[in-house]
Design a protein around this nucleic acid. Sequence first.
DNA 1: CAACGATTTTCGGTATACCGATTTTGGTTA
DNA 2: TAACCAAAATCGGTATACCGAAAATCGTTG
Lengths: 227, 227
Amino acid sequence: MKEEILAAQIANQLRRNIVLGKLQPGASIKERDNAAELGVSRTPLREAIRILATEGLVELRPARSPIVAVPTIQMISDDVEVLLAVEKLSGELACARATDAEIAALAEIVADMDARFDTTDALDMFETDMGFHRAIAAASHNASLAEVHGTLLARLWRARYLAAIQKRNRARVVEHHTAIVSALQARDPALVRDAIQTHLATLRVDIVNTIEAERAVAQDSESAKSA
Amino acid sequence: MKEEILAAQIANQLRRNIVLGKLQPGASIKERDNAAELGVSRTPLREAIRILATEGLVELRPARSPIVAVPTIQMISDDVEVLLAVEKLSGELACARATDAEIAALAEIVADMDARFDTTDALDMFETDMGFHRAIAAASHNASLAEVHGTLLARLWRARYLAAIQKRNRARVVEHHTAIVSALQARDPALVRDAIQTHLATLRVDIVNTIEAERAVAQDSESAKSA
DNA sequence: CAACGATTTTCGGTATACCGATTTTGGTTA
DNA sequence: TAACCAAAATCGGTATACCGAAAATCGTTG
């Protein structure tokens, strides 16, 4: 566990806190306070903040405290749009380059999700889901693509998490994943693209709805406070 | 000029040096030496190195000096593959969202390149070329997409620069750019995708050839040294 | 002479100190 | 009471100091 650099560990810790909502969007991240809290010095903490900034989870402001990013609906929508293109390309390339073992592993993940359908808690299910998408990116055998994909996933992690724990349409998720795996097994690029398109188009709607609902609630408590 | 943070300025400086070959691929970047050389302390220099690392221009090694990245042919090819998808999406979105002024500006760039065809030096022409591609990404009106595009451009900057200064097929570049602009003016997404596909497919070949040639030369001087 | 090993040097990672800009505050005044 | 201004606290940006690990050097040995 000591093999990783301290700044990376801190970044992981902060990322968890942001994604899980322990650090609310808009909250300021003061270097001294957080460093003291985590028992480290400002230097690696500062580096961790920069890492999260490149991931889009933190917003840097000149001569001001960094704050947990408050993505606009527009930005989230933009991210999904890019993710869609990236993942479609991943799927397409995976058709040509993925090993049978990699595709089998994907099928295994889907089978697993299906089996634990209504027994597993939302967080576990969500992480399995993310693992599935990451595995598709990896199966493209294009490191650059996988990296971009990872960045987008991190940026959308919180929004997707909020959408996922409502688990309104787990059934549809499993159904979509099944379609994607089938297309990959057939190694049919066009089919894979369609399946991913369908999946992520649904996702975009879910995410935007969830975020809009969250913003509405935040708006309410804000006006209530001023009353 | 003081408005930018010191680390960003240093990153710009180092980026120029790397792209122009003043810092050769594989060269180690020692924090103390370079900091002293630029008259700054290690802290902002270190931060600059991290910035360049996220751009893929520098490679971080655990407990070792960072080195100027030595991208493999595979990695460059991967990058171009992603860039192709990103730029096709940019063009497609630009068809729907770009303002007439933005498209006119693109046409202006192409006209400019065409006019200065054989009077301008390679570096100027290259920077104009890069500006053209950046403008397409901007015209997508998708901030996330433009950002990813920018990162890929930075990563490929040196390789494209080496390919461009050979200016073997400036004519073809202008021709391709003209086709792209025409398709954008017609706001025909399929046509734009095709035009960009053609342009970047050519680019990939040029880049790979150039890098392979460079590597061959490096190989030669390496074996000569050991003789 | 070559292979090896201990010592010294170098370097990245981390902590701490200092500075200037910004924000907050507390008191003063209209 | 509210607007304002100056003193003080806060915080990010930068410089410097310290530490342990890796690497280079050099003497030793087979």
